[in-house]
């Protein structure tokens, strides 16, 4: 994947404001690489991820992504339908918040994600149990609502839900924020496994120590511009 000269600004009509979030961002991500982005709050880290995922409309620049379905596709100009397909099958997004339908159990959540991929229900049921077990979510939690989970459990469930789709590209928006040490270690192990499986990942981290032990390449961002790239 290649991001070229990405710029994004927000126009707030009622306050008559024009906010430049990021400008001229260029990142090259090779297949199987894990790229880390660091920077202060408000520096534009999440903006980059959300632009890739299509949550933000990109004004300038290109985001070339090598899709297995569409071939090379510019995500900055992809249609809504293309984006929906890619989200369902190729690009996963994990944030620190778990956004789910209320009254959906952990089991249904994961099963739903598998069904979206076009699997049969029996396969999905089997796969769900496997994955929940793999992500060390206790069996007693499987049929309860994620709203009642602890922060660490929610996060693992969030990653689990993104992972069942075996995304080619995984975007991580501060996946370790507000986690205790043990939970972080668990998340780290999971991320390492994903790396070994060849998943390409792009992540935002506040915890530099944690990140340094994982990523191949690190970019640091200040006021919407890159300051340095470290191997």
């Amino acid at each position: 994947m290649e991001i070229k000269d990405l710029s994004k600004s927000f126009i707030l009509h009622n306050q008559r404001k024009h906010i430049h979030a990021v400008s001229n961002i260029t990142i090259t991500v090779k297949k199987g690489e894990f790229i880390g982005i660091t920077g202060k709050s408000g520096s534009g880290k999440s903006t980059i991820l959300k632009s890739i995922y299509g949550t933000y409309q990109v004004q300038e620049g290109d985001i070339w992504y090598e899709s297995s379905h569409y071939g090379a596709i510019n995500l900055a100009k992809a249609t809504e339908r293309e984006m929906i397909y890619l989200r369902k099958h190729e690009i996963g997004y994990v944030s620190q918040f778990l956004n789910v339908m209320p009254r959906t159990t952990a089991r249904e959540l994961v099963t739903g994600a598998i069904l979206e991929m076009g699997q049969t229900r029996e396969m999905a049921n089997i796969e769900t149990e496997k994955i929940l077990d793999h992500f060390e979510i206790g069996t007693e939690l499987w049929d309860s609502y994620p709203a009642t989970f602890s922060g660490g459990e929610k996060l693992r469930l969030n990653i689990a839900r993104a992972m069942v789709k075996r995304p080619r590209l995984l975007l991580l928006d501060e996946p370790t924020a507000s986690l205790d040490h043990d939970s972080k270690v668990k998340v780290k192990t999971l991320l390492e496994q994903l790396m070994n499986e060849g998943t390409t990942m792009l992540g935002i981290f506040h915890d530099l120590e944690f990140m340094n032990r994982l990523v191949n390449k690190e970019y640091s961002i200040q006021n919407g511009c890159f300051t340095q790239a470290v191997q």
């Binding site: 927000f10 126009i11 707030l12 009509h13 009622n14 959300k50 299509g54 949550t55 933000y56 409309q57 809504e80 984006m83 929906i84």
Partner: peptide
Amino acid sequence: EQGLTDQILEDPQHSYTQQLVH
């Protein structure tokens, strides 16, 4: 305005949509 639902809610372009979302 039209778009992906999360895009409409998180990055609304039109002033009316911004007002609505806020």
